[in-house]
Amino acid sequence: MTRFLHSFMDFLRLLGHETVNRVWRLGYGSRFFFAVLFRSGASLTRGRLILREIWFSGVLSLIIILISGLFVGLVLGLQGYEILQRFGSAGALGTMVALSLLRELGPVVAALLFASRAGSAITAEIGLMKATEQLKAMDMMAVDPVARVVAPRFWGGVISMPFLAALFSTMGIFGGWLIGVVFIGVDDGIFWSSMQASVDFRHDVWNGILKSFVFGVAVSQIAVFEGFDSEPTAEGVSRAITRTVVTSALAILALDFVLTSFMFRGIS
């Protein structure tokens, strides 16, 4: 009985400790977020710094985004046709493919891929710079690491994300078209016109872009924070990378729910 009580007390203690730790990290993370925003001046006026990071997080993620987008589109085309033709509305294939990509799959899947490709790389880069004392060296050279290292990576990610999501959706629609029109034989004109008739620029395309922008901010912020906050050892950096991918995925899906319930309430 006493043993049970003891382990129960230990559990409570652990729970309390973990909770306090989480709340502390949340506070520290928020403070860090504002520090990054306030110290972005230097990186925003020196375009070359951000250019390098767009290359790092945008261009290097291009291949995986394009290929995944194509495959998601192919699957949507197949499944969509299979379901829609049961109701005799195979003509709505274009609408289905476009709406599901623009509203949800484009921003969400592109952000998940971005988190695992670019987010983890950003965390690894900053974490290793910390582990090898590069950040401290920079600080001792009177160069603010948050302004010089963190802020450009953050903005590079934020800028890249909407482009990547748009490219993902475009490739997906192309994939859906390929399956639907080229292989299955849905009418080309109906595919596009049904799509154009039901896809609204502001409600569907613009909201999708807005979503991907929010995801870009969230993933980039998580990635730079985990890197900056990582324990300066090989093990600490690898744990930070894992945390980046896991936290990003959770943040993307939770934010997606919140954004969707705001954006698409009352319409259609």
């Binding site: 090898t132 004392e133 590069q134 401290k136 920079m138 600080d139 050279m141 009177a142």
Partner: peptide, 17 residues
């Protein structure tokens, strides 16, 4: 401003990789 007048050599160099 003070650190601009200091130089520091870190244990393993800490070169920017």
């Amino acid at each position: 401003a003070l650190r601009r007048r200091m130089g520091m050599l870190f244990q393993f160099g800490a070169l920017f990789t």
